[in-house]
Amino acid sequence: MKTDLFGTRRDDPIGPGAMILRGFALDPAILADVAHIAGISPFRHMQTPGGRQIGVEMTNCGALGWVSDRHGYRYEPDDPLTGRPWPEMPAGFLRLAQEAAAHAGFPGFRPDACLVNRYVPGVKMGLHQDRDEADLDAPIVSVSLGLPATFQFGGPQRGDPVKKHALEHGDVVVWGGPARLAWHGILTLKRGEHPLTGATRINLTFRRAR
């Protein structure tokens, strides 16, 4: 267990190739960067290929951004809402993602995409796999900010047992290797108020898309 100026950090392994880094992302500059990104490419509700609105609001930063619409799930270099490239990934974001990945046993991670999700109470993210990326050898780094949430994490098969893990502000989940295609999701967000994000939860998901 390691303590720094921001509080206590600890590592919680949740399976082969998967770990929660407790209190790893407590730098207040992260939320300032989120606000900057949203000022360029606003949060929006995307649609599934079937035309259903996704409950979580989304935006992106980095060379590529994850997009969902009637044409399918994919990565694009430009924001379809603005017609301009996605905002550049902040240096602090890149450093955080690389340090978290290395700490969890995945050195050399170079993310080129960061999906930024905004949850409000009553919204959830159903169980899914992150498999739209060309490079499945790279890990996923997921940063939790704001309201607490319950993270569901299973195995590579849809029917594998799923365990629940509480996530607090500043927690980072990293999974790769044998866990790279694990099914995962977020249970319905409960009502609450966080001193830094209000009645919302922000999630940053770093990926190597190409």
Rank of each mutant, 00 (worst) to 15 (best):
M1R: 03
M1P: 00
M1S: 14
L5D: 15
L5Y: 07
G7D: 14
G7Q: 07
G7Y: 02
R9T: 08
G17P: 02
A18P: 01
G23T: 13
F24W: 09
F24P: 01
A25M: 05
D27R: 03
I30W: 03
L31Q: 09
S41R: 01
F43I: 14
R44I: 14
H45C: 11
Q47S: 08
Q53A: 14
I54Y: 13
I54K: 07
G55K: 03
V56L: 12
V56C: 07
V56D: 02
E57S: 09
T59S: 07
N60F: 13
C61I: 04
G62W: 04
A63C: 01
D69M: 13
D69W: 14
D69N: 07
D69K: 11
R70V: 13
H71R: 14
H71E: 10
G72W: 10
Y73E: 15
Y75R: 06
Y75M: 12
E76L: 11
E76H: 14
D78P: 02
D79Y: 11
T82K: 06
R84W: 14
P85T: 02
P85A: 08
P85V: 02
E88M: 06
P90H: 01
A91V: 15
L94Q: 06
L96D: 02
Q98N: 09
A102G: 05
H103N: 01
H103P: 03
H103V: 09
G105R: 01
F106A: 03
F106I: 07
G108Q: 12
G108E: 00
G108N: 10
F109V: 05
F109E: 02
P111K: 00
A113Y: 02
A113V: 00
L115E: 00
N117L: 14
Y119E: 10
P121F: 04
M125D: 04
G126K: 01
L127S: 15
R131A: 13
E133M: 08
D135T: 04
L136P: 03
L136Y: 10
L136I: 11
P139H: 05
I140R: 00
I140K: 00
V143N: 00
L145P: 00
L145I: 10
G146D: 10
L147E: 15
L147T: 02
L147F: 12
P148A: 09
A149H: 04
T150L: 15
G155T: 11
G155N: 12
G155F: 05
P156N: 15
Q157P: 08
Q157I: 11
Q157K: 06
Q157C: 13
G159F: 11
G159C: 10
K163V: 12
K163M: 13
K163T: 12
K164D: 12
H165P: 02
E168C: 05
H169I: 05
G170S: 03
G170Q: 06
D171S: 00
V174Q: 04
W175C: 03
G176C: 09
G177V: 08
P178W: 08
P178K: 04
A179H: 04
R180Y: 04
L181S: 06
L181C: 07
W183E: 15
T188N: 11
K190Y: 06
G192C: 11
P195K: 04
T197D: 12
G198P: 11
G198N: 15
A199Y: 05
A199G: 12
N203K: 05
N203W: 10
L204M: 05
T205Y: 09
T205W: 10
R207N: 00
A209M: 09
R210H: 13
